[in-house]
């Protein structure tokens, strides 16, 4: 079963919830850091990461001695990444989406594909916890392939917690699209509420069952609670605003280590998420 932890906005406490849930249980659990632009989970985990592989995309290369400048590749490319010059086709990798269209369209055999590394996967283990991290290389734009590969590494595990990238665009969809339950983490502020609404729209579009976790509860107003009540959205947990937690967080110490109360709190959130899945299955 896959539980994705997501939010419309960054910095609401996604990683806090994902890591603390993973650390609160005694049975085998796999935590996937799919926030590949900014993977942070490792800072809070007592384990060493080892690189377990590269993520690459297939990038086209022109062999100019075979190219007849016929223009078939440029016509096939919907991303304007190819120009035809008298000296042959010219490909701009920074515009390429690695779809293979030009390679398939070339009748002269002048386009070949080579692997280009855009990110890395790493792995580590501590007790019952397996941790998998995907990381996008700086200057690369395509996060979804790295997210998909990181998730594939976890496939056999029975319980998978996915720390998703923030937002509602393609990276977030790549992370939560096939989750059995989505926990949307938010802050009780106007910014938090606005982002929560966007995230709710997105998970509803994707038809994923979901619930809300309020983090830093007490700092703002009642907007998030009122909204959830109106929309019939279950609040599966709330983490109080606690300067001690924030200070420990800044040093990489997760809340569950701070006190058994926090351990119980996150265990309960995980239990409710699992319950959310089984109740959906009953329907």
């Amino acid at each position: 079963m896959k539980i994705a932890v997501a939010s419309g906005k960054g910095g609401t406490g996604k990683t806090t919830v994902a890591v603390n849930m993973a650390l609160s249980v005694d049975f085998p659990v796999t935590l996937v850091d799919a926030d590949v632009e900014e993977p942070n989970g490792i800072f809070f985990l007592p384990l060493t990461l080892e690189k377990s592989g590269d993520v690459s995309i297939r990038e086209p290369v022109v062999n100019s001695s075979r190219c007849t400048s016929c223009g078939a590749c440029a016509k096939a490319c919907r991303f304007n990444a190819i120009a035809i010059t008298p000296k042959g086709a010219m490909i701009f990798p920074e515009l390429c989406h690695a779809c293979g269209g030009c390679f398939m369209a070339c009748r002269e055999g002048a386009i070949t594909e080579r692997e280009r590394v855009i990110g890395a996967l790493s792995q580590g283990k501590a007790g019952n916890l397996t941790f998998i991290q995907g990381e996008l290389n700086v200057g690369e734009a395509l996060a979804p392939p790295v997210i998909r590969e990181a998730k594939k590494r976890a496939e056999e595990a029975s319980l998978i917690i996915i720390d998703s990238p923030p937002g509602t665009a393609c990276p977030m969809v790549a992370a939560v699209g096939d989750a059995d339950f989505v926990l949307l983490v938010t802050e009780p502020t106007p910014f938090g509420l606005n982002d929560l609404k966007l995230a709710v729209e997105t998970v509803r579009t994707l038809s994923r069952p979901f619930g809300v976790v309020i983090n830093r509860d007490g700092i703002g107003d009642e907007g998030v609670r009122d909204y959830c009540a109106r929309e019939g959205i279950e609040i599966v947990g709330s983490v109080p605003d606690d300067r001690a937690v924030a200070e420990h967080y800044s040093r990489g110490i997760p809340a569950v280590v701070l006190s058994p109360d926090y351990k119980a709190l996150f265990k309960e959130i995980l239990r409710k998420a699992k319950e959310g899945i089984s109740s959906k299955e009953d329907l």
């Binding site: 990444a81 190819i82 120009a83 515009l95």
Partner: peptide
């Protein structure tokens, strides 16, 4: 154009 307007204009 979604992207690559310069490339296609040059073309």
């Amino acid at each position: 154009a979604a992207q690559g307007a310069g490339v296609q204009a040059a073309q």
